[in-house]
Protein backbone atom coordinates (compact mmCIF):
# COMPACT_ATOMS: atom_id res chain seq x y z
CA UNK A 1 0.00 0.00 0.00
CA UNK A 2 1.38 3.41 -1.01
CA UNK A 3 1.41 5.82 1.91
CA UNK A 4 0.91 9.51 1.25
CA UNK A 5 3.28 11.91 2.94
CA UNK A 6 0.96 14.52 4.45
CA UNK A 7 1.62 18.16 5.29
CA UNK A 8 1.62 17.11 8.93
CA UNK A 9 4.36 14.54 8.24
CA UNK A 10 6.43 17.20 6.50
CA UNK A 11 5.94 19.61 9.40
CA UNK A 12 7.30 16.97 11.71
CA UNK A 13 10.33 16.25 9.55
CA UNK A 14 13.65 18.04 9.92
CA UNK A 15 16.29 17.95 7.23
CA UNK A 16 19.88 18.25 8.50
CA UNK A 17 22.17 20.02 6.04
CA UNK A 18 25.90 20.18 6.85
CA UNK A 19 27.44 22.97 4.78
CA UNK A 20 31.08 23.74 4.12
CA UNK A 21 31.91 26.48 1.59
CA UNK A 22 28.64 26.02 -0.29
CA UNK A 23 27.76 29.68 -0.83
CA UNK A 24 27.28 29.23 -4.58
CA UNK A 25 25.25 26.02 -4.35
CA UNK A 26 23.24 25.93 -1.13
CA UNK A 27 20.52 28.52 -1.85
CA UNK A 28 18.52 26.45 -4.40
CA UNK A 29 18.82 23.40 -2.11
CA UNK A 30 17.38 25.27 0.88
CA UNK A 31 14.63 26.91 -1.18
CA UNK A 32 13.59 23.61 -2.76
CA UNK A 33 13.35 21.91 0.67
CA UNK A 34 11.45 24.85 2.20
CA UNK A 35 9.03 24.98 -0.74
CA UNK A 36 8.28 21.31 -0.18
CA UNK A 37 7.25 22.19 3.38
CA UNK A 38 10.07 20.54 5.32
CA UNK A 39 11.95 22.06 8.25
CA UNK A 40 15.71 22.35 8.22
CA UNK A 41 18.63 22.39 10.63
CA UNK A 42 21.56 23.83 8.73
CA UNK A 43 25.04 23.48 10.20
CA UNK A 44 27.68 25.80 8.81
CA UNK A 45 30.89 23.79 9.12
CA UNK A 46 33.34 26.66 9.68
CA UNK A 47 33.02 27.84 6.08
CA UNK A 48 35.56 30.40 4.94
CA UNK A 49 33.31 31.83 2.22
CA UNK A 50 29.97 33.55 2.84
CA UNK A 51 27.92 30.36 3.26
CA UNK A 52 26.62 31.55 6.63
CA UNK A 53 25.38 34.83 5.12
CA UNK A 54 23.61 32.95 2.33
CA UNK A 55 21.93 30.63 4.84
CA UNK A 56 20.86 33.60 6.97
CA UNK A 57 19.39 35.32 3.91
CA UNK A 58 17.39 32.16 3.23
CA UNK A 59 16.19 32.20 6.85
CA UNK A 60 14.77 35.69 6.27
CA UNK A 61 12.66 34.19 3.52
CA UNK A 62 11.60 31.09 5.50
CA UNK A 63 12.07 32.15 9.16
CA UNK A 64 10.03 29.31 10.67
CA UNK A 65 11.46 26.58 8.51
CA UNK A 66 15.18 27.11 9.11
CA UNK A 67 17.35 26.70 12.21
CA UNK A 68 21.00 27.65 11.87
CA UNK A 69 24.00 26.47 13.87
CA UNK A 70 27.57 27.35 13.07
CA UNK A 71 30.78 25.52 13.98
CA UNK A 72 33.55 27.98 14.80
CA UNK A 73 36.10 25.99 12.80
CA UNK A 74 35.82 23.38 10.08
CA UNK A 75 35.49 19.92 11.66
CA UNK A 76 34.27 17.88 8.71
CA UNK A 77 30.99 16.47 7.54
CA UNK A 78 30.88 13.91 10.37
CA UNK A 79 30.95 16.44 13.20
CA UNK A 80 28.66 18.86 11.33
CA UNK A 81 26.06 16.14 10.81
CA UNK A 82 26.34 15.00 14.42
CA UNK A 83 25.78 18.61 15.50
CA UNK A 84 22.69 18.72 13.28
CA UNK A 85 21.39 15.45 14.74
CA UNK A 86 21.95 16.70 18.31
CA UNK A 87 20.25 20.02 17.51
CA UNK A 88 17.30 18.35 15.85
CA UNK A 89 16.57 16.23 18.94
CA UNK A 90 15.60 19.41 20.82
CA UNK A 91 12.73 19.97 18.33
CA UNK A 92 11.33 16.46 18.97
CA UNK A 93 10.53 15.78 15.32
CA UNK A 94 8.96 12.57 14.07
CA UNK A 95 11.44 12.05 11.25
CA UNK A 96 14.99 13.28 10.61
CA UNK A 97 16.63 13.37 7.19
CA UNK A 98 20.20 14.29 6.35
CA UNK A 99 21.28 15.21 2.86
CA UNK A 100 24.12 16.99 1.08
CA UNK A 101 23.90 20.75 0.68
CA UNK A 102 25.87 20.97 -2.58
CA UNK A 103 22.89 20.23 -4.81
CA UNK A 104 23.93 16.63 -5.43
CA UNK A 105 20.64 15.39 -3.95
CA UNK A 106 17.21 16.40 -5.12
CA UNK A 107 14.53 17.69 -2.74
CA UNK A 108 12.07 15.82 -4.96
CA UNK A 109 13.32 12.60 -3.36
CA UNK A 110 12.43 13.70 0.18
CA UNK A 111 8.89 12.31 0.03
CA UNK A 112 10.15 8.95 -1.26
CA UNK A 113 12.85 8.76 1.38
CA UNK A 114 10.56 9.38 4.35
CA UNK A 115 7.65 7.32 2.98
CA UNK A 116 8.92 3.99 4.46
CA UNK A 117 9.14 5.75 7.86
CA UNK A 118 5.65 7.25 7.53
CA UNK A 119 4.25 3.82 6.72
CA UNK A 120 5.72 2.58 10.00
CA UNK A 121 7.31 -0.38 8.23
CA UNK A 122 10.89 0.88 8.64
CA UNK A 123 12.68 3.16 11.10
CA UNK A 124 15.59 4.16 8.89
CA UNK A 125 16.14 4.73 5.19
CA UNK A 126 19.28 4.85 3.06
CA UNK A 127 19.05 6.73 -0.23
CA UNK A 128 20.74 4.67 -2.94
CA UNK A 129 22.46 6.57 -5.73
CA UNK A 130 22.48 5.15 -9.26
CA UNK A 131 25.96 3.61 -9.54
CA UNK A 132 25.77 3.28 -13.32
CA UNK A 133 25.54 7.07 -13.65
CA UNK A 134 28.61 7.66 -11.48
CA UNK A 135 31.98 8.62 -12.95
CA UNK A 136 34.26 5.55 -13.04
CA UNK A 137 36.59 6.55 -10.19
CA UNK A 138 33.65 7.44 -7.95
CA UNK A 139 31.88 4.21 -8.83
CA UNK A 140 35.02 2.17 -8.04
CA UNK A 141 35.63 3.97 -4.71
CA UNK A 142 32.01 3.44 -3.64
CA UNK A 143 32.13 -0.25 -4.52
CA UNK A 144 35.29 -0.63 -2.46
CA UNK A 145 33.60 1.19 0.44
CA UNK A 146 30.58 -1.13 0.20
CA UNK A 147 32.92 -4.09 0.46
CA UNK A 148 34.79 -2.58 3.44
CA UNK A 149 31.50 -1.76 5.19
CA UNK A 150 30.51 -5.39 4.67
CA UNK A 151 33.83 -6.69 6.05
CA UNK A 152 34.34 -4.33 8.99
CA UNK A 153 30.75 -3.48 9.97
CA UNK A 154 29.11 -6.69 8.75
CA UNK A 155 26.33 -4.87 6.88
CA UNK A 156 25.56 -5.47 3.23
CA UNK A 157 24.04 -2.40 1.59
CA UNK A 158 23.85 -1.17 -2.00
CA UNK A 159 25.28 2.28 -1.23
CA UNK A 160 27.24 2.60 2.00
CA UNK A 161 28.52 6.12 1.22
CA UNK A 162 25.25 7.91 0.58
CA UNK A 163 24.73 11.23 2.31
CA UNK A 164 20.96 11.00 1.90
CA UNK A 165 19.46 9.15 4.83
CA UNK A 166 16.39 9.30 7.04
CA UNK A 167 15.59 8.01 10.50
CA UNK A 168 12.79 8.24 13.01
CA UNK A 169 13.22 10.30 16.16
CA UNK A 170 13.17 7.20 18.40
CA UNK A 171 15.75 5.40 16.29
CA UNK A 172 18.00 8.46 16.17
CA UNK A 173 18.09 8.52 19.97
CA UNK A 174 19.36 4.93 19.98
CA UNK A 175 22.32 5.40 17.65
CA UNK A 176 25.71 6.77 18.64
CA UNK A 177 27.78 8.37 15.91
CA UNK A 178 31.34 9.58 16.51
CA UNK A 179 32.76 9.67 12.97
CA UNK A 180 34.78 12.73 12.04
CA UNK A 181 34.66 12.74 8.25
CA UNK A 182 32.96 10.77 5.51
CA UNK A 183 33.08 7.67 7.73
CA UNK A 184 29.74 8.91 9.07
CA UNK A 185 27.96 7.20 6.17
CA UNK A 186 29.25 3.74 7.03
CA UNK A 187 28.96 4.41 10.76
CA UNK A 188 25.30 5.41 10.41
CA UNK A 189 24.61 2.09 8.66
CA UNK A 190 26.59 0.16 11.28
CA UNK A 191 24.69 1.81 14.15
CA UNK A 192 21.33 1.20 12.48
CA UNK A 193 22.24 -2.46 11.94
CA UNK A 194 23.78 -3.01 15.41
CA UNK A 195 20.70 -1.53 17.10
CA UNK A 196 18.39 -3.79 15.06
CA UNK A 197 16.66 -0.80 13.52
CA UNK A 198 14.73 -1.99 10.45
CA UNK A 199 15.94 -0.06 7.43
CA UNK A 200 14.99 0.29 3.79
CA UNK A 201 16.98 1.25 0.72
CA UNK A 202 15.31 3.79 -1.56
CA UNK A 203 16.65 4.80 -4.99
CA UNK A 204 17.46 8.50 -5.27
CA UNK A 205 18.57 10.81 -8.04
CA UNK A 206 22.09 12.21 -8.06
CA UNK A 207 23.00 15.40 -9.84
CA UNK A 208 26.68 15.32 -10.78
CA UNK A 209 28.41 18.57 -11.64
CA UNK A 210 32.17 19.24 -11.65
CA UNK A 211 31.72 20.91 -8.25
CA UNK A 212 29.82 18.05 -6.60
CA UNK A 213 32.32 15.57 -8.01
CA UNK A 214 35.14 17.38 -6.25
CA UNK A 215 33.58 16.39 -2.91
CA UNK A 216 32.49 13.08 -1.44
CA UNK A 217 34.08 9.66 -1.40
CA UNK A 218 36.95 9.62 -3.86
CA UNK A 219 39.97 7.30 -3.67
CA UNK A 220 41.73 9.53 -1.09
CA UNK A 221 38.67 9.65 1.16
CA UNK A 222 38.26 5.89 0.75
CA UNK A 223 41.76 5.32 2.12
CA UNK A 224 41.06 7.62 5.09
CA UNK A 225 37.79 5.80 5.82
CA UNK A 226 39.57 2.44 5.56
CA UNK A 227 42.18 3.53 8.14
CA UNK A 228 39.45 4.73 10.50
CA UNK A 229 37.53 1.46 10.07
CA UNK A 230 40.64 -0.54 10.95
CA UNK A 231 41.25 1.63 14.01
CA UNK A 232 37.65 1.18 15.15
CA UNK A 233 38.26 -2.56 15.39
CA UNK A 234 40.59 -2.00 18.36
Amino acid sequence: MEYDVTVEDKNQTYVVLPAYNESTRIRPVIEAIAEKGYNMVIVNDGSTDNTLEVITECKRKYPDKIHIYSLLINRGVGVATQTGFDAVLSFSPKYVVSMDSDGQHSADDLDNVIRPLVSGEFQAVIGVRPFDEMPFTRNFANNVMNLLTRIFYRVNVTDSQTGFRAITYDALKKIDINAKGYLISSEFIREVNDNNIPFAEVPIKTIYTPETQAKGTNAKEAIKIFIQMVRHQF
Binding site: T56, S70, I73, V79, T83
Partner: peptide, 22 residues
Protein backbone atom coordinates in the same frame (compact mmCIF):
# COMPACT_ATOMS: atom_id res chain seq x y z
CA UNK B 1 40.83 16.38 18.11
CA UNK B 2 37.95 14.73 19.96
CA UNK B 3 38.05 17.41 22.65
CA UNK B 4 38.08 20.19 20.04
CA UNK B 5 35.13 18.54 18.25
CA UNK B 6 33.18 18.36 21.52
CA UNK B 7 33.85 22.01 22.36
CA UNK B 8 33.08 23.29 18.84
CA UNK B 9 29.87 21.24 18.81
CA UNK B 10 28.76 22.44 22.25
CA UNK B 11 29.45 26.08 21.37
CA UNK B 12 27.42 25.73 18.16
CA UNK B 13 24.53 23.97 19.88
CA UNK B 14 24.23 26.57 22.60
CA UNK B 15 24.29 29.45 20.11
CA UNK B 16 21.55 28.95 17.55
CA UNK B 17 21.85 31.78 15.03
CA UNK B 18 18.71 33.86 14.90
CA UNK B 19 17.77 36.79 12.69
CA UNK B 20 18.10 39.06 15.75
CA UNK B 21 21.82 38.17 15.92
CA UNK B 22 22.26 39.39 12.37
Amino acid sequence: QDDVNKIVKEVALSNEITLDDE
